[in-house]
Every structure is written in structure tokens, then in C-alpha cells.
């Protein structure tokens, strides 16, 4: 029982990062109907910014906000340079554009800084643990869970209590009608990308803290986790994105820990199998959204 509880908390820590990534994916999907496969590039670029910052002897206290800023700026640049050019195109075109962005960013990084893994120091407390009764909890997991909760609350407040949030939700519900009602579509989309970038930045801090390195394809794994979590939760639902992320993280840790060693290598296959099983019965994901495009 103690072991299960331990695994559960470890999984929630892992899943919280996935949840932050899924939130960013859900925000963009809500406004543009776009599954943004370039979302991971925000972490890739932020990672290289972190490498440069650590090279200048900056501490994690300064690098963390830098990662968020770089992620937001990168997200806005990607929107401006790529997605704004295909805004009226089909979902398929936009999807391919997002793949193209990933390929271009990777190629540019390989040519400019090389294909080798760039490492940097994790925070000194990254592996510290706190004993709570029979449980030994990582400080890192507790911090990630707390920050995710605060970020989710702040995002909800932003969307529910501000004019920008109202515009974003209106555009998500019916983009054309929102424009006719005076909503500035460019501003809304830029805002969505900035918000998505900020969420990716927060996720990126923890992803990079844990990894302690980056390379030109560093964004693939977080992108896949974020998209999967958003799908599990139900595309268009912020609550679903969080739930999907947590479910994915817990499932990964539990399966890796509880499966017999001889079949534990099938963890990812089992996770994908469970997801496929979920979609047979709930193709809309865990949370049903009245309008899939709603944020």
C-alpha cells in the first residue's frame, strides 16, 4: 500500500508536467483548431537559452523566468512567421506546418550549435527528499504539483475574469461571430500563443531541471506527452488537459513499477493500449466538451 501511494505521488509529479504541456496544447486547439506539433520546440529553444544563460553563470532563479520569456517569445515568433501565413488554410495544412516548424528548428539548431547534447547543472536540491511517515517524497515532485495547481488557477482566472479571456473564449466558441462582434482576431490569436508559450515555459522549467540537458530533438518527447494528455482529457477542455496529464503520469509510473520486470519494457505499449481502449468507449476523451473547439 505504501509502495502504491509512493508511486501515486511520483506519478502526480510526473503528470503535473504533462498537464502543463497539455494546457498549452489545449489553448491553441481551442482557438485555432490546431494540434500544435511544434509545441515541443518551445522547450527546445528554451533549453538552448538555458544553456547560454548557465554559460554566463546565471543561477536557476534567473534562468527560470528567462525560460518562460524565451518560450513566450518563441511561440509568438512561430505564430508570426509560420502559422499566420496559413491561418485560413485547412487543419491538415496547419498540422503539416507545425511538423515543418519542428523540422526547421531542429535543422537550424544542428547547423548552428551542433547535434550533441548540451548539459547544464540541475538545481542542487533536485534529488532531495522529505520523509512523511513511511513515504519518501521528492521535493521536486511536491514543487511541480504545487506550481501546476497555481498555474491552473491563474489560467482559469485569466480566461474567466479578464477581457482577454472573454475574447479568447468567444473566439473559441465561434471565431467568425466573435470577429463580427468586434473581437480583434489577431490579438486573440497572439494572446493564445503567448499564453501557450507561458504554459510551455513553466513546464519547460521543470522538464529542463529534471533533464539537465537539451539537444535539437529535445522537444519531441514533451510534445508527444502534451498532445497525448490533451487527447486523453478531451481536446478543448482545460480541466481535461490537466486530468489527462495527471492520468498519463500516474499510469506511466504505476505500470513501470508494478509490472513484472520481464514485461516492464512494455510500459509504453501498455499505456498506448490503455489510451486506445479509452477511445473505444470515450472517443471524446475523459471530459466531454459541448463544443470541441471551446477553450
Amino acid at each position: 500500500m505504501t509502495s502504491l501511494l509512493q508511486n501515486l505521488i511520483d506519478g502526480l509529479g510526473q503528470g503535473s508536467i504533462y498537464a502543463l504541456l497539455a494546457l498549452g496544447v489545449a489553448v491553441i486547439f481551442g482557438v485555432m483548431h490546431l494540434l500544435n506539433f511544434a509545441h515541443g520546440e518551445l522547450i527546445t529553444v528554451s533549453g538552448y537559452a538555458a544553456v547560454a544563460a548557465f554559460g554566463s553563470n546565471l543561477s536557476w532563479w534567473l534562468v527560470a523566468p528567462l525560460i518562460i520569456v524565451v518560450s513566450i517569445v518563441t511561440s509568438l515568433v512561430i505564430e508570426r512567421v509560420a502559422f499566420s501565413r496559413v491561418r485560413g488554410a485547412s487543419e491538415f495544412t496547419q498540422l503539416l506546418t507545425s511538423f515543418g516548424i519542428h523540422i526547421i528548428v531542429s535543422a537550424v539548431l544542428i547547423m548552428s550549435v551542433g547535434a550533441s547534447v548540451k548539459t547544464f547543472a540541475e538545481p542542487p536540491w533536485i534529488f532531495d527528499r522529505i520523509d512523511v511517515g513511511p513515504l519518501s517524497l521528492e521535493k521536486f515532485d511536491l514543487l511541480v504539483i504545487a506550481v501546476t495547481a497555481v498555474t491552473l488557477a491563474a489560467t482559469t482566472w485569466l480566461l474567466q475574469r479578464t477581457t482577454f479571456g472573454l475574447s479568447l473564449r468567444a473566439a473559441a466558441a465561434d471565431f467568425d461571430t466573435a470577429r463580427l462582434m468586434g473581437v480583434d482576431s489577431d490579438r486573440v490569436i497572439r494572446g493564445a500563443f503567448a499564453l501557450s508559450g507561458a504554459l510551455a515555459g513553466v513546464a519547460g522549467i521543470f522538464w529542463l531541471m529534471r533533464a539537465g540537458n537539451t539537444d535539437p530533438s529535445a522537444g519531441i518527447d514533451p510534445m508527444l506527452k502534451g498532445v497525448l494528455a490533451a487527447l486523453i482529457g478531451g481536446l478543448g477542455s482545460l480541466r481535461g488537459a490537466v486530468l489527462g496529464g495527471l492520468a498519463l503520469g500516474v499510469a506511466e509510473v504505476l505500470l513501470r513499477s508494478q509490472l513484472p520486470s520481464s514485461v516492464a519494457v512494455l510500459t509504453d505499449a501498455v499505456v498506448f493500449g490503455l489510451i486506445a481502449f479509452l477511445f473505444i468507449f470515450r472517443p471524446q476523451g475523459l471530459i466531454t466538451v459541448q463544443h470541441a473547439e471551446r477553450v
Binding site: F37, I103, I220, L224, L235
Partner: peptide
Amino acid sequence: LLALLFAFALVAAACGGDDT
């Protein structure tokens, strides 16, 4: 779009990082 997404996700997962 979902069907397409899964196709791409599976391809990306299978290919790992060698798509660039």
C-alpha cells in the same frame, strides 16, 4: 484530425528523434 494525429504520433514515436 484525430485519426491523422494518431498516425503522426505513432510515426513520430516509432522514429524517435531521427526525423530531422
